[in-house]
Write a protein that binds this DNA or RNA. Structure first.
Length: 561
RNA sequence: GGCCCCGUAGUUCAAUGGAUAGAACGAUCGCCUCCUAAGCGAUAGAUGCAGGUUCGAUUCCUGCCGGGGCUGCCA
């Protein structure tokens, strides 16, 4: 259940009972234990509007809440200038902990998520690690019952493919060259810059490609297939849910582009300027160019075509774009044009959810020692290797296939979690030691907490699913853990609406820490009488929540580590 | 020039207009006859500067200083 929503509604009624017509309870988890479990901050503002004493109003609200909702709170206090602090009752917590299942929304959205979208001209680099954000959001929205349509808007079209295809034509069957797309690209580029005949042919090749010349398209297809197979391998290693069915390549929109320009013209939005077709909007200094002087189209054009398809064909309620923050202006402009031109339904929400850059230790964009791009595939290999070293050192008992599995889960988990646990919009510094640490807000710490709980069940000789009784909530550490377990749903819903997966990370870290505190304070296996089963049940609920939460972030758990 | 984002402990990160700004790493000091010490606890340490709005500002507004990004034919 969404505990916060549940309480907010009830406190809202109490506001009304106390004479507040249009209540905004401003219900939040309490900042400190002494302020109870949840606090309502809305009484002060309401008192201001009604020109009444905030503490008197808060007291009336507290009483109305207690009267209308018996049994929920153990204590409702008025504190400070007019805070209403609610401490939930043990009986209520215990009852609600019967299940921590994720509740599906009664009002699902159809959401198109546009994420990852690598340029197929090159291999995926460290920046594509941030594919994890869109992927986590896709999993979370699905878990909450929304209909998710993943779209991987890969760059498979445009000027640079002329150069690449021309180079491939010359190499013919020597496909070994395509093992390393970075090298291949660099070689093609070198020829393009040095050899004017080759450059001219590259430009003609682009035209041939767009015209649909069969031979050229064959080479292009071959190049794209190889590049996509590199992507598939990365997604596989990284545990990304994108498949070929989610591909929404730029080339798909090639034929729709002239109509985009035509329709913009029909809508009276098109202006020719210096030979290019532009849309000028008052809000923006620069125009959105939809067709170049040479007749070629630009990414704004294909984004418009794609947005159109997403609303017309897919009937999306929300379209969420997860891209680099540097594209923010582009999105603001293209959203504005799409709206003005009527390309997207009024009710459809267009959302750009930008993310920051990944930096090296020097606070500059993350590069290799020699200044080259860091291939994502290499980075992931290194993560697993480093994790293997740590696992061998910390737990030599793990061997063979199990050690491999743990190294993979910990290494990949660490890298993904490092990416997901920071605020989406901020740049962050990539640091192996921090992300692979077993202390602090890291994947290994959370995985360890899960593994430790599994160890309890192995020792107890019972399986976690066999426990069904609701746990009793007695000790302070039990109650703090119980309250937090009940906040899983509201956390997920907040992540879904704000597209901020780091909130889920923060939640899981707090849960794991609080479990460790509970575990230190409350013996489980040696607990007397009925409290043993009760505490085991708390362990089971915690493990389940950790595993589900990590699963929604695309991070694996292991039984032992 | 214009627009956008960001300045929080030594470091890496949090904080929804709310109460005494939270963690982690690092530092110092404790806790294994005890369910994984890969853990738990304690101590010290921070909102760039100046105004404003508000009962209340890290959060909103203005200016300044500092950093990054974007900005009519790449994506």
């Amino acid at each position: 259940m969404n505990l916060r929503g549940f309480l907010s509604e009830r406190v809202g009624k109490a506001f009304r009972a106390a004479g507040v017509d249009d209540p905004e309870p401003m219900l939040r988890p309490s900042g400190r234990p002494e302020f109870g479990d949840y606090q309502a901050n809305g009484a002060m503002a309401a008192a201001k509007r009604l020109r009444t004493n905030p503490r008197v109003l808060a007291t009336a609200i507290a009483e109305a809440f207690t009267d209308a909702s018996p049994g929920i709170a153990e204590q409702v206090d008025v504190a400070g200038p007019g805070f209403v602090n609610i401490t939930l009752s043990s009986a209520f917590l215990s009852k609600r902990l019967g299940s921590v299942d994720i509740e599906r929304t009664p009002d699902p959205d159809r959401a198109v998520l546009d994420y990852s979208s690598p340029n197929l001209a090159k291999e995926m680099h460290v920046g594509h690690l941030r594919t994890t954000i869109g992927d986590a959001m896709a999993r979370i929205l699905e878990a909450l019952g929304h209909e998710v349509i993943r779209q991987n808007h890969v760059g498979d079209w445009g000027t640079q493919f002329g150069m690449l295809v021309a180079h491939l034509e010359d190499l013919q069957e020597d496909a070994a060259e395509l093992k390393d797309l970075e090298v291949f690209y660099a070689e093609a580029r070198k020829r393009f810059d040095a050899d004017t005949a080759f450059a001219d042919r590259a430009r003609r090749t682009v035209v041939d490609l767009q015209r649909g010349d069969e031979a050229v398209r064959g080479y292009w297809r071959r190049f794209i297939d190889i590049s996509l197979s590199h992507c598939r391998a990365v997604y596989e290693t990284l545990g990304i849910t994108l498949t070929d069915a989610d591909l929404d390549a730029e080339s798909r929109y090639n034929d729709a582009l002239p109509k985009v320009v035509e329709d913009l013209d029909r809508a009276g939005l098109l202006t020719e300027s210096d030979g290019a077709m532009c849309v000028f909007l008052e809000e923006f200094e620069a125009p959105v160019i939809v067709q170049k002087r040479d007749g070629g189209y630009l990414y704004a054009t294909s984004d418009l075509a794609a947005a159109r398809l997403r609303t017309d064909h897919y009937r999306a309620d929300r379209v969420l774009y997860f891209t680099d923050a540097r594209q923010s202006l582009h999105f603001r402009q293209f959203f504005a044009v799409a709206r003005k031109a009527g390309f997207v339904a009024e009710e459809c929400s267009l959302e750009h959810h930008p993310f920051g850059a990944i930096l090296g230790q020097d606070n500059r964009p993350f590069k290799t020692r020699t200044g080259g791009v860091v291939k994502l595939a290499d980075l992931l290999d290194e993560a697993v290797e480093r994790a293997r070293g740590l696992v061998e050192e910390k737990n030599p008992e793990l061997t063979g296939a199990e050690a491999d599995r743990v190294a993979r889960a910990v290494g990949i988990g660490a890298v993904k979690y490092a990416d997901l646990s920071k605020h989406r919009t901020s740049d962050y510094v990539f640091d192996w030691d921090t992300m692979l640490s077993f202390d602090g807000n890291t994947a290994p710490y959370l995985q360890y907490a899960f593994a430790r709980i599994q160890s309890i069940f192995r020792r107890a000789g019972v399986s976690a699913d066999s426990l069904e009784a609701a746990p009793a909530v007695v000790e302070p550490e039990e109650r703090r853990l119980a309250v937090l377990l009940l906040r899983f749903q509201e956390t997920l819903e907040q992540v879904a609406s704000e597209a901020l997966p780091h909130l889920l990370c923060a939640y899981l870290y707090e849960l794991a820490s609080r479990f460790m505190q509970f575990y230190e304070a409350c013996p489980v296996l040696d607990a007397p009488g009925e409290s043993r089963a009760s505490r085991l049940r708390l362990c089971a609920l915690t493990a389940e929540t950790l595993q589900r939460g990590l699963g929604l972030l695309g991070i694996e758990t292991v039984e032992r580590m």
